[in-house]
């Protein structure tokens, strides 16, 4: 049996706390540089592009594309033993940064790099709300270059 009670609690620092706080409110937010306007992940104390100290947390579009994905056919811990096979995705948000997440209602045969996805939220265990993604049809150019 999988045992979600044994899922780790994310290690939250002052730099990443706004990300998790926004998830609790059902929002995906990103740290955005006030100077060069670029967003980055993982959250850090300065803009990694222009080194500016001024970071503003802003709501993200919540849309992006699959940069890559894997499917686990064996569980490496009992947390996921009754879920195999299961998918894990790397999403590139339209704002640029990438994050690891899950994907809902999708079979591996339908997975492709570049497919468009949109964020939702899932309560993994009481009080732990994390982003998850679902496929969407939209007009953005999601094709792999």
């Amino acid at each position: 049996m999988s045992d979600t009670n044994h899922l780790p609690t994310p290690r939250v620092s002052p730099d990443s706390a706004p990300f998790w706080a926004a998830c609790k409110g059902g929002q995906l937010e990103l740290p955005v540089c006030a100077t060069c306007k670029k967003a980055h992940l993982p959250p850090g104390p300065v803009c990694p592009f222009c080194f500016s100290d001024t970071i503003e947390w802003k709501p993200a579009s919540g849309r992006g594309e699959i940069a890559s994905w894997v499917e686990y056919h064996m569980a490496f811990s009992n947390r996921f033993s009754d879920q195999v096979p299961y998918l894990v995705v790397l999403v590139e948000l339209d704002e640029g940064p990438r994050l690891v997440s899950s994907i809902r209602d999708t079979a591996s045969k339908d997975m492709r790099v570049g497919m468009r996805v949109e964020v939702g939220f899932e309560e993994l265990k009481p009080g732990l709300i994390v982003p998850t993604f679902s496929p969407i049809e939209d007009n953005a150019n999601g094709d792999l270059i």
Binding site: R11, S77, R79, V88, V100, S102, L124, L128
Partner: peptide, 15 residues
């Protein structure tokens, strides 16, 4: 917090 040393994300089973 930024992900595991090989990109792991144990919340999602990326182990």
């Amino acid at each position: 917090e930024e992900g595991g040393s090989h990109g792991e994300a144990p919340l999602y089973g990326l182990e």
